Simulated assay, not measured.
Amino acid sequence: MTTQQTNESTIRQWDTMPRKVMEAMEPDGDFAKRHLINPVLLRMLGDVRGLRVLDAGSGQGYLSRMLATRGAHVTAVEPTDAMFTYSQEKEQALQQGVHHVQADLSRLPDLGGRYDAVLCSMVLPTIPDWKPAMRACVQALRPGGLFVFSVNHPAFEQLLATWRKHGEYRLSRYLEEYEIPLTRATDFHRPISAYLNELTALGCRLREIAEPGLEPPIAREAADTESGIESYVHLPNFLIVAAERP
Score class of each variant (00 low, 15 high):
V53N: 00
V123I: 12
P109W: 10
G203Q: 10
E89K: 10
P246I: 05
P216R: 01
G144L: 05
Q88N: 11
L159N: 10
E26N: 09
R190G: 12
E23L: 13
S193A: 15
E244Y: 15
G228A: 04
A72G: 01
V148S: 07
Q96T: 15
P132E: 06
S87I: 01
L199P: 00
I240E: 08
A210N: 03
M25L: 15
V77R: 07
L182T: 15
A222G: 12
T126S: 15
I37H: 03
E23K: 12
Q139W: 02
L41P: 10
W14V: 06
N237L: 11
R173T: 13
M83T: 11
M1C: 02
Y178P: 02
L108H: 08
A136S: 13
D116W: 01
S121T: 07
G145S: 09
T186F: 06
Q4S: 15
F84L: 14
R34M: 02
H166G: 04
L63G: 06
L41Y: 08
D129K: 06
E230S: 12
M122E: 15
R220E: 14
D129A: 12
P212T: 09
V48Q: 09
E221S: 14
P79F: 04
T10Q: 09
Q92I: 14
G144P: 08
R65T: 12
A242L: 08
D28I: 09
Q88P: 00
E211T: 11
E26V: 10
P132D: 03
P125A: 11
G46W: 00
S193F: 12
G145F: 01
G112S: 08
D15I: 02
V241N: 12
A76M: 03
L119F: 08
R49P: 04
P217T: 07
G203A: 04
A242K: 05
P132Q: 06
R205Y: 12
F188L: 00
T183Y: 13
P181C: 07
N7D: 09
G50W: 04
A194R: 08
